[in-house]
């Protein structure tokens, strides 16, 4: 059995799963852990860790403003906006 603290993960992600969702999430996470366990069995002696599987390096972009900001269009998909702000349920630490 994998050691999964689903309560902790929910807290980190600010999610509240119901029982059925929690069960499904648990199964999926278990699958991921099994996959990682299987990968751990591979002999990686002498293989340098890679940050990315592509054999390429990052291309850089010149420091130029290229975007026209269409706030109205971007905010059309937001559930709640006011005065140009996105509104979310009140978060206070």
């Amino acid at each position: 059995m994998a050691d999964i603290d689903l309560d902790h993960l929910q807290r980190l992600a600010a999610l509240r799963l119901n029982e059925a969702e929690a069960e499904r999430a648990y199964r999926e996470l278990e699958g991921i852990i099994h996959m990682i366990d299987a990968m751990r069995g591979i002999d990686t002696e002498g293989v340098a860790p890679m940050a990315n599987p592509l054999d390429a390096v990052q291309r850089l972009r010149p420091d130029v403003v290229t975007e026209n900001i269409d706030r109205e269009a971007y905010q059309a998909v937001a559930p709640n906006v006011d005065g140009g702000f996105y509104l979310v349920p009140r978060v206070v630490e």
């Binding site: 709640n80 005065g83 140009g84 702000f85 996105y86 509104l87 979310v88 349920p89 978060v91 206070v92």
Partner: peptide, 15 residues
């Protein structure tokens, strides 16, 4: 930036 006192009952977000 999160603004907590601009809109009552909500947090306003400026990105």
């Amino acid at each position: 930036k999160s603004v907590h006192d601009a809109v009552p009952g909500a947090t306003a977000v400026d990105l």
